[in-house]
Structures are given as C-alpha cells and as structure tokens.
C-alpha cells in the first residue's frame, strides 16, 4: 500500500509539471514569429542536403515522430503474431 501511494504521488507530480508547460505557449493568435515551418522551408536544403523537403522533415527534423510510426507497425506485427501463434484469438468466438 505504501509503495502504491508513492507511485501515485510521483505520477501526480509528473502530470502537474507537464501541465505547467501549457503556460509557456504563446497566446491565442500570437503565433507571428514563433512558427517552425518557415525555418524548415528555409534551411532544409542547407542542413540536410536533401532535395525532398518532406523527406528531410520526416526523417531528419522530426525523426522521433517517424520512429513512433515504425513502432506502431512493429506492434501491429507482434500483435498479429501473438494472436495467430499463441491462440489468443481462439476463445469463445470460434
């Protein structure tokens, strides 16, 4: 019980500190010079040397995002593998 209370407390503190980040956002309608799209278009050729701007954004500027996409695919393959191989789908439905 003590351990569970500690875990819940740590989670609450982490959620609260992540919520604090909201106050650092620019206000509604004040995005004038804070947009990152201009920087991507201006510097993608200089920084990544790639002729495809979309490819340079997907695999260079935001590669962690793409890594998440690949994780989704990997998880889908593992899920189907576990369904077919270990018979998790052979419950009451069949």
């Amino acid at each position: 019980m003590m351990k569970r209370n500690i875990v819940v407390g740590v989670c609450m503190v982490m959620i609260f500190s992540f919520m604090l980040y909201v106050f650092m956002f620019p206000g509604f309608g004040e995005w004038d010079n804070k947009s990152v799209a201009e920087h991507y278009i201006q510097n993608s050729l200089k920084e990544t040397n790639s002729a495809n701007v979309v490819g340079s954004i997907v695999w260079d500027f935001r590669s962690f995002d793409t890594l998440g996409e690949e994780t989704v695919l990997f998880t889908a393959a593992m899920g189907i593998f576990s369904l077919v191989m270990f018979g998790l789908g052979k419950g009451e439905g069949k």
Binding site: S50, W59, D60, T66, E70, L73, A77, I80, F81, V84
Partner: peptide, 30 residues
C-alpha cells in the same frame, strides 16, 4: 547526397517490408 535521410530510409524500408511480410504470411497461414 543526404546521408542520414538515405540511411534512415533504407533501414526503415527494410523494416516496413519485413513487418508487412510477417503480417501477410501469418494471415494467409491462418
């Protein structure tokens, strides 16, 4: 030309191919 984009494309392409191959083979087997 763009080494990091090229390398990540090749590795990601092989991974996508293998993942979808596994899915298709398993579903045909079932």
């Amino acid at each position: 030309s763009a080494q990091q984009v090229l390398l990540l494309n090749v590795f990601g392409g092989i991974m996508v191919t293998m993942a979808l191959t596994v899915i298709v083979f398993l579903l045909i087997k079932e």
